[in-house]
Simulated assay, not measured.
Amino acid sequence: MSGSNSSSSSGRSMLRTLILVLATTLIGVNSVGATPATQSSWTSALSQVYETTDRLPLPNLGNIVAHDPNIVQHDGNYYLFKGGHHVPIFKSDNLNGPWEKIGTVLDQNSIIDVGNRSRPWAPTTIYRDGMFYCYYTLSTHGKRNSAIGVATTNKLDGSPWNDHGAVIRTGKGPGSDIHPFSETNAIDASFIMDQNSNKSYLNYGSFWHGIWQLPLADDLLSIESPENPDAVQLTFIPNQKIRPQEGSWMSYHDGYYYVWFSQGKCCKFGESEHDFPARGREYNIRVGRSRDIRGPFKDKDGESLVEGGGTIVYASNHGIVYAPGGLGVLAGNDSSRDILYYHYLNTSIGFKDGDAHLGWNWLTYEDGWPEVTTDSAGAIFGIPSWLYLSILLCFWLYI
């Protein structure tokens, strides 16, 4: 009898321990990133330039240094591409890492003679019909002499990529005198496919005349009708000399196409409070939507994106997260929500470009408008993790 009681007591103890482990895990999932900001010689000055509200959730930690990250989900793994020497590629089975470097897109400098050919920016990789296409940027900060190139491979295992050269050029080079390339900046490419026609489009652009969209040729290696491109402007800030919009992304959800972009000062914040813009002028993530892939796009207040509109979805928060941007969206499915990922600066680490880290959040949609959350809220049999947590703790108290 005493042996039975001992066995029963041991079983309950093990069950209570297991429940505590599960509950702790759920708490951790919803509180990652809550690192207290450390003091510096100019913390008081910074409090005037970054938002300290807790209205927005903290990011889930990607645990990798990355500026303008791009993530592809394929065969049960995540593949992260980022700007850097020959465009490095990392692999993980979890967005929280750990990440393993598996190679680079380019095995030598880009064949495009523009900018820093050894360190392309802002890659975007897509998978179509058994082939991976990586669109990358070559430019110099603050210059319009830029190009978007493309490289391909059929495997993400460290195999060589084929560099096909430039898709579009601005500033100098073939085709750069044709509108809209004659006044835009060929950086920050992203890709979208029409849900009905399967037609593919390239989005690009920055400070110079906003963000634009072009139809791609069927081979995805060039634009359609390069002598007379069917270009559509997606975003613009009128009546201002400086128009800090870039890093576009386009996603699709429940009948709407969403144009995402980063607005504000992205980088080169330096080590002095004098290098920081006024509050709200740093990078933040904005969005507009349309039923048509070609627009027009409007924000939540009905303002056109080409008239300066754009609903803020994520921005500096808690005094910890600063200047989030360089974003992408991973599409969900019936059992998992869409995911917004981005780079951000953690005020407890530093503000240099090399301090940018990967962060991510689940997306929920209210009346068709995306909002960020730390909770998967539906990824586990459609039941939010807070409800699981409540059930587990009640069961723990009962036993």
Rank of each mutant, 00 (worst) to 15 (best):
P120W: 01
A23N: 10
L340E: 02
G115N: 03
D254Y: 14
S92I: 13
T52H: 15
W212L: 06
S225N: 15
I320T: 13
I399L: 15
T373M: 11
S7H: 09
T24N: 10
S262K: 04
K82I: 13
S225L: 04
F181M: 14
R279F: 14
S316N: 01
E246C: 03
A377N: 15
A323K: 00
S9K: 12
Y78T: 12
N94E: 12
N346G: 02
D219Q: 08
T53G: 15
L26H: 01
E366I: 14
G97I: 10
H67S: 13
S139T: 10
S4E: 15
S159F: 07
M193K: 11
R243K: 12
L202M: 13
G350L: 12
S110W: 10
A166F: 06
D275M: 09
I71M: 14
G319V: 02
G288K: 01
L392K: 05
G158Q: 07
N145Y: 03
E366G: 09
G3C: 14
P180V: 05
L393T: 10
A186R: 00
S390G: 15
S290H: 06
A166H: 01
R12W: 12
A166W: 03
I285E: 03
Q245H: 07
A315R: 12
K199D: 12
V372T: 13
T184R: 01
A37W: 05
S159D: 10
A278W: 13
E246K: 01
D113Q: 05
I349R: 04
D353I: 04
Y136M: 08
V72K: 04
H179T: 10
G149V: 02
S10A: 15
Y78Q: 06
L397M: 14
L15V: 14
G173A: 10
P59A: 06
C267G: 10
L46H: 05
P98K: 12
S10Y: 13
T170R: 00
V29Q: 06
W99C: 01
G247P: 02
D292G: 06
H164K: 02
A377E: 14
G270H: 02
E307R: 10
N162T: 15
S2I: 15
L340N: 02
K172M: 13
T374S: 14
V105S: 09
Y344G: 03
K101F: 07
T153K: 05
A315D: 07
R291W: 08
Y133M: 03
N333W: 11
P244V: 08
V259T: 02
I211A: 05
R169V: 04
Y252E: 13
L58D: 03
I187N: 00
W99A: 01
V321W: 00
Y314S: 08
L221E: 07
S6Y: 11
P296R: 07
G130S: 03
I64S: 09
A217N: 05
P296L: 08
G83L: 09
T184D: 05
Q233D: 12
E51T: 15
T140I: 14
Q108D: 13
S176Q: 05
P123K: 06
S206Y: 00
G382N: 11
G309T: 02
W362R: 08
L363D: 06
F191C: 08
P215A: 07
S6E: 15
G83F: 02
